[in-house]
Computed example of a mutant assay.
Amino acid sequence: MIIKELEMKTHTDLLRRAGYEAERQMAHYLKRAFGEDPYKFVLNNLRVERGGEVAQVDHLIVLRFGLLVVESKSVAGQLSVNEQGEWTRWWNRQGRGMPSPVLQARRQLDLLCALLNDHTAELLDRGLFGLKQRTFTPMRRDVLVAISDGGRITRKTEVPEVVKADQVPERVQQIIREMQGRLTAFTFSDAEMTRICAFLRNRHVAGSEAQPDLASAPCPVQAPASAAHTPVSRGLTGVVSPPHSLPVAAPALPEPAQIGSAQIPHCRQCQSSKLSIQYGKYGYYFKCAACEGNTPAKPVCPTCQQPARLSKSGPQFTAACAGGHQWRYWTNG
Rank of each mutant, 00 (worst) to 15 (best):
M8H: 14
T12K: 12
E21Y: 10
M26L: 10
Y29Q: 02
K31G: 03
A33G: 00
G35R: 04
R50Y: 12
E53S: 14
Q56Y: 08
L60N: 01
R64C: 07
E71S: 05
V81W: 01
M98E: 06
A114Q: 14
A114C: 12
H119D: 04
F129E: 14
T137E: 15
L144T: 03
G150L: 01
R152G: 09
T154Y: 15
R155P: 06
K156I: 11
E158P: 04
D166Y: 14
V172F: 04
E178I: 10
L183A: 10
E192T: 06
R195P: 00
L200N: 00
H204W: 11
V205F: 07
V205M: 03
A206P: 02
D213H: 08
A217M: 05
V221E: 06
A227Y: 07
H244V: 13
H244M: 14
P256E: 08
A257E: 15
I259N: 09
C270K: 06
K274H: 14
L275I: 06
I277N: 11
Y284M: 07
F286P: 13
A289V: 08
Q305N: 15
Q305V: 13
R309F: 00
K312H: 11
P315A: 15
A320T: 15
A320K: 04
Y329R: 06
T331P: 14
G333S: 13
